[in-house]
Design a protein around this nucleic acid. Structure first.
Lengths: 165, 165
DNA sequence: GCGACAGAGTTTCCTCAAGGAACTCCGGAA
DNA sequence: TTCCGGAGTTCCTTGAGGAAACTCTGTCGC
């Protein structure tokens, strides 16, 4: 296929920008693998069954974008991939995917993996809260407004959010 | 390209399952558009600049997966897409993408769109909390454990999370 | 010293589906 | 009776992804 081009959206949409970084097929799964400790090329390749070519491309891109670092672990040309701060924060996304997938897509067997929260020691999952007041913050709890990086002051028309997010 | 095949991962990974639903290019942006009120085919098509063919495919798939409903709004064959409960909860993912994108990828101009939280009236963004204890829950705050839907009891080896999430 | 080895990619070739553009279909409206 | 606007289809090209073989580099065993 042709490389999907979100360019028109990149200007005005943090979602599109984020997708540009981890939106490609396999990228989130690679991020997950590195997060849980599969740090080497062949480990990730074997775990995912991804082609070596694609894995190379994705890893290079993720390094380029500052999501991961490529660090030598031997005199020989051997490298490990580690998450940067930027990459670690991106794992939030994976946790939300996990929560949603567990809730809506888990088979009769239940979730394949559980997470124990260090702070309370319980098996739990993530919940979205307002960073300001701490109350729940979901799809219906917000109004979108044009921000400083928007294309310009939108006419306050009937369509509140034509150029979005 | 050949349709990316996560099949090996689908069995054991809620992330892969979730990606199977909204992981394709454009799907998250379509979800966003419908969320903010662009509900008709041509509106979405014009907003995203996506090809009509791909938009048709994505919409059909999202309807099939129960993320959206296709509802007539006229005697003529005219339809609108609306989010289901399942789809609305998936918007959480978009909010996390927005938060991450705003933090790490916003240009010098700042975020293109802001969200005002109904509960507190403030411009804010989402934060991840433990659904159980309410404390912050991020990448470093959890241990993954095999759950009921895992392939089987993993040998409690040195590699704590080989078959993951 | 020399070949086998292991990790980490590169390269090549092939296939097939993603994207784009143009076409169709349907039921009012003029 | 034609025009129009919304909502899809159809067709073609291209380039992404997969598979497998090849490369490069430093170690290890003998």
């Amino acid at each position: 296929m042709q490389r999907t081009n979100f360019s028109s959206q990149l200007a005005a949409c943090s979602i599109a920008r984020t997708l540009d970084v981890i939106g490609e097929p396999w990228s989130p799964l690679i991020l997950r693998d590195v997060w849980v400790g599969l740090r080497r090329f062949d480990q990730i390749q074997a775990d995912l069954g991804i082609s070596r070519k694609v894995l190379t491309e994705r890893l290079n891109y993720l390094v380029e974008e500052g999501i991961m670092e490529r660090l030598p672990y031997d005199q020989r040309p051997r490298y490990e991939y580690h998450l940067t701060r930027k990459g670690t924060e991106l794992v939030d996304l994976l946790m939300v995917m996990t929560a949603w997938g567990d809730r809506w897509l888990a088979g009769e067997a239940g979730p394949p993996v559980l997470y124990r929260h260090h702070a309370c020691g319980e098996i739990s999952h993530v919940d979205l809260r307002c960073a300001h007041c701490g109350e729940p913050m979901h799809a219906g709890d917000v109004d979108p407004l044009p921000g400083p990086g928007s294309a310009g002051p939108e006419p306050a028309g009937a369509e509140p959010a034509d150029q979005l997010a």
